[in-house]
Computed example of a mutant assay.
Amino acid sequence: MSDATGAGPDSLDRIAADLLALKEANPISYAEIGRRIGEQRVARGVPAAAAYPARSTVYDVFRAGRTRIDPDLLRDIVTALGGDEAEVERWAQRARQLRRPTEPTARQRVAPTARPVALPAPADIDRFPGAQQPRWWSPYVLLLGCIVLNLLGIMVVQALHLPIYLDMAGTATASIILGPWHGAVVATAGNLLGFAVGAPGAAPYALVNLAGALVWGYGVRRWRMGDGIGRFFALNLLAATACSLVGAPLGVFLFGGLSGHGSDTVTESIVTMGLPLIAAAFSSNILTSVIDKVLTGFMALMAFVWLHRAAGFPASHMPLVERLSASPEHPHPSARL
Rank of each mutant, 00 (worst) to 15 (best):
V117F: 08
A174N: 00
A184Y: 06
S263C: 11
L237M: 05
A121G: 15
E322V: 09
I286C: 02
S334C: 08
G170N: 07
A51Y: 10
A184G: 09
A49G: 12
S11P: 06
L162K: 03
G65I: 01
Y165I: 06
A315T: 08
N26L: 09
R99M: 15
V42G: 10
L166C: 06
S29T: 15
R336P: 07
L245H: 03
H332C: 09
A86R: 13
S138I: 07
Q133F: 11
R99L: 14
R231S: 11
G201P: 08
P47D: 06
N236A: 14
K293G: 02
T79Y: 07
L192C: 07
T57P: 02
G247V: 02
P53T: 12
M273G: 13
V290Q: 08
Y140K: 03
W181V: 05
F195K: 00
V110D: 08
L214R: 00
G34W: 04
R35K: 04
T67D: 13
P104R: 12
A189S: 04
G45A: 03
G65Y: 05
P276S: 09
A240L: 04
D3T: 13
R100G: 15
P101L: 13
R55W: 06
A159R: 05
A187V: 04
V141F: 03
D264C: 13
N285E: 14
T267M: 14
I147F: 00
T265H: 11
V290P: 03
G260I: 12
W306A: 07
A240V: 03
G38I: 13
R109H: 12
V252I: 15
E85Y: 05
T241A: 02
A25W: 05
S29F: 09
A4M: 04
S263E: 14
V252E: 11
P319I: 06
A335W: 10
A118M: 14
W137C: 08
R309N: 01
A248E: 09
R35C: 02
M273L: 15
